[in-house]
Design a protein around this nucleic acid. Structure first.
Length: 597
DNA sequence: ATAGGGTTAG
């Protein structure tokens, strides 16, 4: 009778809401058939086999990891035993919940365990810390860490140590993670991987690569697939192509398995480091491609402005029988946007839900607003934002704000900026836009209002930063920064470029500058933009004809864009710049974006 | 009997 009651809520393995669970660990168990487990349970009850602690434990563990939707069932089995549950059972339940969509339940169970004076063991903490990591709750984890110390596990258990490193790094306390890592008496490949991935997660890509280099100096560990995945990711973010190539070579040389995920990471790396052709070559040779591999390639082509190729690949993927997912469509719509293919984009959006059963999310609408906005259909874009079934967020409005700025629609821009500030009162771009609008129309008291509100809230424009790689080393330039050892040479080079430009009748495009400083100061600010510093540095330090790869954190401004076109022609250089939203290939005085970005 | 690290867009 009891079995029947608890069995009502049981479902098979078809729960679609378990994205957390595709991670390693539980997936290997998900094949356990719940009906089979129910039969075993029934049989155990009939034959009094549930009296056997080991068998009961195994049953609970199997049910708990079969599928998160069966956790309640596992719990009820544990609750109805005639004897108190043992540590193994507690651990199994905590483990199941830690990987479920409700990791907080794992914490509740862990607390209940402690309340009942049941001591956790070395297996308990990795599960509990996993739950803290998913919850991103630093205080919670700090408490658990305290208990780890009290139980005497901090210095003695490598699994717990790695769990702690992973936890702190995921919660933004990478320095603490590093401290713990350094204190570990023994570190295996997993410990190193946790730290490397931790730096990547904390946007500390250079540190991730530094740790990888330290790791290579050691004879007791060898990089594996996961290590290289982390390093490839860091290269992708940095745009460090040479380092990325080196990672690829390392994989080949050491026969590291090129799984679909590592292959996908490499394709993404090449694409985002500017080598779209190498990315394509690797893509074509990948023996097994999953939906992510296809999505990465499509997205890569899109940001390089190769819309036709992206759409072609999108069709090919379907001929291969791979179903596009939400990410695929972001890439496809992004391709349309960068190529100004308004009709195609709208058609695809329309088909998403109807034909592919992928409901458009706010990101997809963002692509469409971008698409309409770039091609000047501002009213249509505004209409779309008002019409969509989802609540617009600041990012969506932001796409329209960018369009208002580039098409000089002050009235709509003001409206949009105000909407954005309602949703995100700290949004820097919206403040700056408003301030500029007011300044350009002489509404000085309103300018002052915006300024002081920014000051009060401590809102500052993030500084522009550009990265350029030279002989495998990444150099970073910040706008206006004069600390580089070669700064005098760099400025001499920039002066020379400015002179050549003005001889050609070029006027600095100061329109994009936010502040109400005078024209001379604006010109000075422009001349110190980070991408200009980086390109001058590259020109000075590389051979004639070498390609310059630059990665910028913000969008390229109008003035830098025309300067780059000019430099590419005069110096006979291919300059490839990745900005916040796409790639620009500058060659012979032209840019691949056809001045449409 | 049980444990730690994992790829895509915005």
């Amino acid at each position: 009778m009891r079995l029947r009651l608890v069995a009502v809520n049981i479902s098979g393995n078809s729960n679609p809401n378990i994205s957390l669970l595709t991670r390693r660990g539980l997936s290997s168990f998900s094949s356990s058939n719940i009906n089979h487990l129910k039969q075993i349970h029934a049989k155990l009850i009939r034959n009094s086999g549930i009296q056997d602690v080991l068998t009961a434990g195994k049953l609970i563990a199997d049910i708990a990891v079969s599928n998160p939707s069966n956790l309640e069932y596992a719990r009820s089995v544990m609750a109805t035993l005639e004897y108190p549950p043992n540590t193994f059972m507690w651990n199994s339940m905590i483990r199941g919940y830690a990987h479920s969509p409700n990791p907080i339940e794992a914490i509740f169970l862990y607390r209940k365990m402690l309340e009942q004076r049941h001591l956790p063991n070395n297996y308990t903490f990795p599960f509990v810390l996993k739950a803290c990591t998913h919850l991103m709750d630093l205080n919670l984890g700090l408490g658990v860490h305290g208990t780890v110390i009290k139980c005497g596990f901090e210095d003695s258990d490598a699994f717990i140590q790695t769990s702690l490193v992973n936890f702190y790094a995921s919660c933004g306390s990478i320095e603490t993670a590093r401290l713990l890592f350094d204190r570990c008496p023994e570190r295996d490949v997993t410990s190193w991987n946790a730290l490397i991935k931790g730096y990547v997660r904390s946007n500390r890509y250079l540190d991730a690569i530094r740790v990888f280099r330290l790791m290579q100096d050691r004879r007791d560990v060898r990089a594996d697939e996961i290590t290289l995945l982390g390093v490839a990711l860091a290269c992708t973010q940095l745009g460090a192509l040479d380092m990325g190539r080196w990672v690829h070579a390392y994989i080949d040389k050491n026969h590291v398995k090129l799984s679909a995920s590592l292959g996908t990471a490499l394709i993404d790396m090449y694409a985002k480091c500017g080598s779209i052709d190498v990315a394509m070559h690797l893509f074509e040779r990948m023996p097994e491609k999953d939906v992510r591999t296809w999505s990465v390639m499509i997205g890569g082509l899109a940001v390089h402005g190769l819309a036709y190729e992206a759409l072609e690949l999108f069709s090919e993927m379907q001929r291969f029988g791979i179903n596009p997912d939400s990410v695929t469509f972001t890439g496809v719509l992004c391709a349309c946007s960068h190529a100004g293919m308004v009709e195609e984009g709208l058609q695809i959006l329309d088909k998403m839900g109807k034909v592919y059963s992928v409901e458009p999310t706010i990101e997809h609408y963002g692509c469409i607003v971008d698409l309409l906005g770039r091609s000047g259909c501002l009213e249509e874009a505004l209409g779309l934002i008002r019409r969509i079934p989802l609540k617009p967020d600041a990012v969506l409005w932001g796409a329209l704000l960018v369009a208002c700025r580039s098409h000089n629609n002050v009235a709509m821009g003001e409206l949009v900026a105000k909407e954005m500030l309602k949703l995100d009162p700290h949004h820097c771009g919206a403040h700056v836009f408003l301030s500029n609008v007011y300044a350009s129309t002489g509404r000085w008291s309103e300018v002052e209002q915006v300024r002081s509100s920014m000051k009060e809230q401590g809102i500052r424009k993030p500084p522009g930063s550009s990265l350029i790689e030279l002989n495998g080393d990444v150099h970073e330039f910040i706008a206006g920064d004069r600390s580089h050892p070669q700064i005098n040479q760099i400025h001499m080079m920039l002066d020379e470029i400015a002179t050549l430009l003005s001889l050609q009748g070029h006027v600095p495009a100061t329109r994009g500058i936010a502040l109400d400083i005078d024209e001379e100061e604006k010109k000075l600010a422009l001349s110190q933009h980070s991408e200009k510093l980086a390109v001058a540095f590259g020109l000075i330090n590389t051979k004639q004809g070498a390609v310059l790869h630059i990665v910028k954190n913000l969008r390229v401004c109008e003035d830098c864009h025309s300067a780059m076109k000019f430099i590419s022609k005069v110096f006979h250089r291919l300059i490839i710049i990745r900005d916040r939203s796409r790639f620009h290939h500058f060659k012979d005085g032209f840019c691949s974006c056809r001045d449409y970005w």
